[in-house]
Design a protein around this nucleic acid. Structure first.
Length: 913
RNA sequence: GGGCUCUUAGCUCAGUUGGUUAGAGCGCUACCUUGACAUGGUAGAGGUCACAGGUUCGAGUCCUGUAGGGCCCACCA
């Protein structure tokens, strides 16, 4: 057997086990009718992306769930894949083109798209490679891409079905236009930011009078597109103006003055200019009053030919400056005051959005939203934490139509075809389009130039990845999926839309029972949605590329190991709270890994010592020679198994992780392993030693199984060392199932009492600075119920005290005292009381009298405080009358026990004075 | 403006049906290289649980309000 290194070295084991699992197909899931599926679809990362801490958290959590379910007997299937990320990817490629001084128009559409595909071949799998380093157990054979053939078919199919149903329409609309990308953005892709601007007060002369109407605006340049002025119908200041005509300065266009309740009384001057082509609200207002729309910008937000010559070709901001000057020269600028307002910016390039009138495609969302709202409301889909359900419901009840066209080249081209006279339809190809349009088979036809919003493919993810629209068994078996783990900021972009799509398009597809689905239960895309925390840096800022505050997870893995990173992330991420992360925090996980490693090393050393090279089996618990410590750890273990399963069921991954930490570090390493040493190193018969080490290994084996979902690499490495696994893997081993027979509170109390004795002795040594090299005697009174048990279990206590012996490198020799008996040198002893049992440690010559007095006084004060609080309760008649009986009884019991402690402590203190 | 959320030890945070004098990790202090582990062990210091009311026998936990932080949605030209 090879020696294990003194510290755990992740680099030596991680890649080895990942290939082992992958080579043996252990990630792969298939339709298995006798097993319940557990399906997770990955939120597909962008092909432009590199692994961030957000991905680490998200994928660690998914892997924990998937590995846990896989070990628990489910057919666990985790479908991975990537997103083509239209705008982001096009951006990336255009950037590299720009380095060669080229623009996409230089190449033309076809060549450019070809280039993007090349780019995707080259760089698009980076994040997938990085994910493997994290240890994720994705079913890589099912990896999909939102633009691969199958998914493109799904996109087309969905578009055509919605189009034929009348749920997709084309319309002139004010969209959020990014002049940089020259494409429309959905409302959600616009970030609103506060900005310091000005409120310009411009005078509009009223025709046929000497009056002016003063209009306040933040964007004077849009006045070139004004087609009306508007006031509130109830505004007495301006009632007389309604129906009159104003003159647009500089342009001299005549503007009708209209009245509309949209105007907010009390804001600005009370008169608003109406620019239907360049403001979403004005657009609606303009439609209501049948105003003309004058578009003054081209697609790059430069002034077009519909404005006076001197402004044509100017950039919008340049035009603003010039216009302000000109208005001032004309005396039309009443005043300019500083003004803070919100402006919309492109979420990708931060360019200021221009509300722009253009032809776009939309999906009518209301008909789809109804069922999606219902399933969340009725709990068919559960959100964790559930407060997100409220956010979801609010958005869904106020849902607006979805602008799905994008004026870029990289993406799914809209499957709409036009005849030369403008008729159009949606079709799978040109021929089908001609048929649907009823034109000749050779008629000229052209496809829409636009592509679809990236989310138009990702909203189909839970079924398109499983082969839809082709009917197949895997789709029936793995959809609905089970748990979706995603960030709350894409609840509308993605989560809500997936619910709508799955419910709409899976209707009639056979379910697990082979019958066509009808019920909501079978139509939902997933049952649980876990919303991850947002990972922030230590200052609480969101991690972002531009801030450069996001540690590279690969560096972290390199430095600390994937398990350490996974553990730390899971440990730090409570359900529903943001996480402040820093690389150094991974020491927590690294130290834990090292602790586990050394526990394993210790057990293996002793196995070697006792068994030599003979192999052992850990198939079942070696139940011979069970002693108190064994019964105790078995109780603790089963408690841990129970709680672990419960916490994971409740999506409390951080709690499950904490539990692992406490069980392995404190219960197993601090106490059980230390107790086991008394047997490994003692003069027990060989068969007792054999049973002991085998049992310790068996417990450790169980602990590694519990650990595996969170720390797959180190658990597998150690698990393989514990016994000859004959080619098996921990990732396919059984997850521990609680055996309630082993949970034994009495034993835990007994051991707990002994621990208190040990703690008391340690406390004396620690506080009185008794050097470790100093041998001490320990006198223990046998007292009460536990006292009797102590006498019975004297051997265990000796063992426990032997533990002190090793820790302190000093002998601690227990002597049993009967009630009333006094230890020798009582006067010079330090003392403690644990659950009524007195301990004396004679410390003639070394003891500092003042120190011991202080120590006792401190302890008395603590216990006195406890007693006082109990007495306050018990002397309150209402408490005794109204509190539940068991609570009162517990208090009385406590009062009695602690009272005894207090008396003895006081007596001991008195002995000093 | 509407909604959500947070405020607990020096720092970062747990604490899900209200019931021991509130826990962890890091940091800090003291002691310890012992036959798994100094990425370790033992002991210790450190909190009027943001504030003010209320409900209750009992509140970190439930309710109301206040102050401060964060997020989301909608936006007034």
């Amino acid at each position: 057997m090879q020696e294990l290194s003194k510290t755990y070295s992740p680099k030596d084991v991680e890649d080895k086990w990942y290939s082992y699992w992958e080579d043996r197909n252990l990630f792969h899931a298939t339709v298995q009718k006798n097993k319940t599926p557990f399906t997770v679809v990955i939120p597909p990362p962008n092909i432009t992306g590199i692994l961030t801490m957000g991905h680490v958290l998200n994928n660690t959590l998914q892997d924990v769930f998937v590995r846990w379910k896989r070990m628990s007997g489910y057919e666990a299937c985790w479908v991975p894949g990537t997103d083509h990320a239209g705008i982001a990817t096009q951006n990336a490629v255009e950037k590299s083109l720009a380095k060669e001084g080229k623009h996409r128009y230089d190449l033309g559409r076809e060549k450019f798209v070809e280039l993007v595909w090349e780019w995707r071949q080259k760089y698009g799998s980076t994040i997938i490679r990085q994910l493997r380093k994290l240890g994720v157990s994705c079913d890589w054979k099912r990896e999909r891409f939102t633009m691969d053939e199958g998914l493109s078919d799904a996109v087309k199919e969905v578009f055509i079905r919605l189009f034929d149903k009348g749920l997709i329409y084309r319309g002139k609309y004010i969209v959020n236009w990014c002049p940089q990308h020259q494409t429309a953005l959905s409302d959600d892709e616009v970030d609103h930011e506060e900005a310091n601007g000005n409120l310009y007060h411009i005078k509009y002369p009223i025709l046929g009078t000497n009056e002016f109407a003063i209009v306040a605006t933040t964007r004077p340049e849009t006045m070139l597109g004004d087609t009306a002025l508007c006031v509130h119908p109830k505004d007495d200041r301006y009632k007389h103006l309604v129906g009159k005509t104003a003159v647009l300065p500089i342009v001299n266009r005549h503007l009708p003055i209209i009245a509309d309740e949209y105007i907010e009384l009390g804001f600005g001057t009370g008169v608003m200019k109406v620019t239907p082509a360049h403001d979403a609200n004005d657009f609606v207002l303009g439609q209501r009053h049948e105003l003309s729309q004058i578009n003054i910008f081209d697609e790059t937000a430069h002034l077009n030919t519909s404005v006076p010559k001197q402004y044509q070709g100017m950039d919008r901001f340049e035009c603003r400056r010039q216009l302000v000057k000109d208005l001032e020269a004309l005396g039309c600028m009443a005043k300019i005051e500083p003004y803070v307002h919100n402006i919309g910016k492109c979420y990708r390039c931060h360019t200021i959005i221009e509300p722009w009138l253009s032809d776009q495609w939309f999906v009518k969302m209301r008909p789809l939203a109804g069922p999606a709202l219902r399933v969340v409301h009725e709990g068919k889909i559960k959100f964790h934490p559930d407060r997100w359900a409220k956010v979801y419901e609010h958005w869904m009840t106020n849902i607006r139509d979805w602008c799905i066209s994008r004026q870029i080249w990289w993406g799914h081209r809209i499957p709409v075809y036009y005849t030369s006279d403008g008729a159009y339809t949606a079709a799978r190809n040109e021929n089908e389009a001609r048929k649907k349009l009823g034109v000749a088979p050779d008629a000229a036809i052209r496809q829409d130039e636009d592509v679809l919003d990236t989310w138009f493919s990702s909203w189909l993810w839970p079924f398109s990845t499983l082969g839809w629209p082709n009917d197949n068994e895997e789709l029936h078996y793995f959809n609905p999926t089970d748990t979706l783990v995603t960030a709350p900021d894409i609840i509308f972009f993605w989560v809500a839309r997936m619910v709508m799509a799955n419910m709409e398009f899976m209707k009639g597809t056979p379910g697990k029972d082979g019958k066509p689905r009808k019920k909501d239960d079978d139509l939902v895309p997933f049952r649980d949605v876990y919303f991850t925390s947002i990972i922030r840096d230590e200052q609480g800022r969101k991690m972002s590329k531009s801030l450069g505050n996001s540690p590279d997870p690969l560096d972290v893995i390199d430095q600390y190991g994937a398990d350490a990173l996974r553990f730390t992330t899971a440990f730090l991420a409570p359900l529903g709270q943001d996480v402040l992360f820093s690389t150094e925090k991974c020491e927590l996980g690294r130290n834990f890994a090292n602790k586990i490693w050394n526990a394993g090393r210790f057990l293996l050393m002793n196995k070697q010592e006792i068994f030599g090279d003979n192999e052992i089996s850990l198939d079942k618990l070696p139940a011979e020679h069970l002693d108190l410590a064994d019964r105790w750890i078995l109780s603790r273990l089963n408690q841990a198994i129970k709680t672990m399963n419960e916490k994971l069921d409740e999506f409390q991954v951080n709690e499950a992780t904490k539990l692992l930490y406490d069980f392995i570090w404190h219960d197993f390493c601090d106490w059980y392993v230390e107790l086991a040493k008394t047997r490994f190193y003692g003069d027990e018969p060989q068969d007792v030693k054999r049973a002991s080490i085998t049992r310790a290994l068996w417990i450790f084996d169980q602990a590694l199984r519990l650990l595996h979902p969170v720390m797959p690499f180190i658990s597998e490495e150690l698990w393989q060392h514990l016994a000859n696994r004959k080619g098996a893997s921990l990732m396919r081993a059984d997850f521990p199932v609680v055996d309630a027979r082993y949970i034994n509170q009495t034993i835990e109390d007994e051991v707990g009492f002994m621990m208190k004795l040990i703690d008391a002795v340690r406390n004396i040594r620690g506080e009185l600075n008794v050097p470790p090299s100093k041998q001490v005697d320990v006198y223990i009174y046998l007292h009460g119920e536990f006292g009797e048990k102590l006498a019975v279990n004297a051997e265990y206590v000796k063992g426990l005290l032997g533990y002190i012996e090793r820790l302190c490198k000093a002998k601690a020799i227990p002597t049993w005292l009967q009630e009333g008996e006094k230890p020798k040198q009582h006067k010079n002893s330090a003392s403690a009381v644990a659950d009524g049992t007195e301990i004396f440690i004679p410390l003639e010559g070394i003891i500092d009298l003042d120190a011991e007095r202080k120590r006792l006084e401190k302890e008395i004060a603590r216990v006195q405080g406890l007693i006082d609080s109990i007495e306050r309760k018990l002397s309150n008649p209402s408490f005794v009358a109204k509190a539940p009986k068991d609570v009162v009884a517990k208090e009385r019991e406590k009062q009695k026990n602690i009272g005894v402690n207090l008396e003895k402590l006081k007596a001991n203190l008195a002995a000093w004075s």
